[in-house]
């Protein structure tokens, strides 16, 4: 058993041991041990050149990561939260994502950016949002969202091995979660969705922070005789529509559980993509359970109410069964 946090650290350590081009940089990754303690202990092992504390300059150090990747290194940049990453969007969208195409294929940016995302810790409207869709919108980058301890490790390894810029979104509530970790097993294909629980009646689609809610909802539904199939999307760009479509073709119903806001969000994109592919397989409209359209509030009862809940997933699944 391992925690999600330890699994990521295990991947970082292995990468640093195996490849001297790999280094980690970001705010407080070194002396502090990482805002979420992911890199704790790595400074002592690898030194300050490779576990590099940066100034509070998201655009600056993400841009420096792009430059280091262009220069032949394999940088891993940690951005404290997805809210802070907005300060680096210029570098992400205008440089990381464009470089290969705009240079006619001459340059590549094998950069990995990891960041915490999501709500649930009462840290209010500047630390709790799920803005993964902002990144998943952009051609040229890839977006991974590990929901399990095994994926937390494997996806960091795979992201660093990839020649393109890869963004890894780590849900902040998952860092302490424990689960099975097999460090010898061949990792699953990172770009493919995985059926985490098979079922016949309705497909529940979640990822990162919402996979657990989907699985819990499936348990509750099972007690009422409804067999939900739970699909872990895992990769937010590119989206594995073949796997999603196969599940919906089997169940004819779907509920998408997205911690982002509904308007302009990933859930809508998934609905549209499924509609284009398997419209005639559907027995009713696809449903969405998303975060309420508000800045995430601080008070616990209000935050809990704003975020997707298991109850709402169950209710949406039942609604979809009514057609």
């Amino acid at each position: 058993m391992s925690s999600y946090r330890d699994a990521i650290r295990s991947a970082l350590r292995q990468l640093m041991q195996e490849d001297e081009r790999v280094f980690l940089m970001g705010e407080d990754v070194g002396n502090y041990g990482g805002a979420y303690a992911v890199s704790k202990g790595l400074l002592e092992e690898f030194g300050p050149e490779r576990i590099r504390d940066t100034p509070l300059a998201e655009s600056g150090f993400v841009g420096a990561g792009i430059g280091a990747a262009l220069g032949g290194m394999r940088p891993i940049v940690e951005v404290m939260t997805v809210n802070f990453s907005l300060l680096a969007l210029d570098q992400v969208v205008n440089n990381a994502a464009t470089m290969r195409h705009m240079s006619g294929g001459q340059f590549e940016v094998p950069l990995v950016v990891r960041m915490a995302t999501g709500g649930g810790k009462q840290i209010a409207a500047q630390h709790s949002h799920s803005l993964e869709n902002w990144f998943a919108h952009v051609p040229g980058i890839k977006c991974l969202a590990p929901a399990t301890v095994q994926d937390a490790r494997d996806m960091v390894l795979q992201a660093v091995a990839d020649p393109d810029p890869v963004f890894v979104f780590e849900h902040q509530l998952l860092y302490g979660m424990t689960g099975e970790l097999d460090e010898e097993a061949a990792p699953a294909d990172p770009w493919r969705a995985i059926v985490r629980r098979p079922g016949e009646d309705v497909t529940l689609i979640g990822w990162a922070g919402t996979l657990g809610k989907c699985l819990e909802a499936a348990e509750a539904l099972a007690k009422e005789g409804v067999e939900a199939e739970v699909v872990d999307l895992r990769c937010l760009r590119p989206i594995d529509f073949p796997t999603l479509a196969a599940s919906v073709t089997k169940t004819h119903r779907a509920v998408i559980v997205d911690e982002g806001w509904k308007t302009g969000g990933l859930a809508g994109e998934l609905m549209a993509g499924l509609m284009e592919r398997v419209f005639y397989e559907l027995d009713g409209p696809i449903r969405r359970v998303c975060t309420a359209e508000v800045p995430i509030p601080y008070a616990k009862h209000m935050e809990d109410h704003a975020l997707p809940t298991v109850e709402r997933v169950v209710a949406a699944a039942k609604e979809s069964l009514r057609g």
């Binding site: 841009g63 420096a64 990561g65 430059g67 990747a69 570098q91």
Partner: peptide
């Protein structure tokens, strides 16, 4: 910032 990264590399 990209120039800084190239120099760092």
């Amino acid at each position: 910032p990209v120039a800084v990264g190239l120099a760092l590399a």
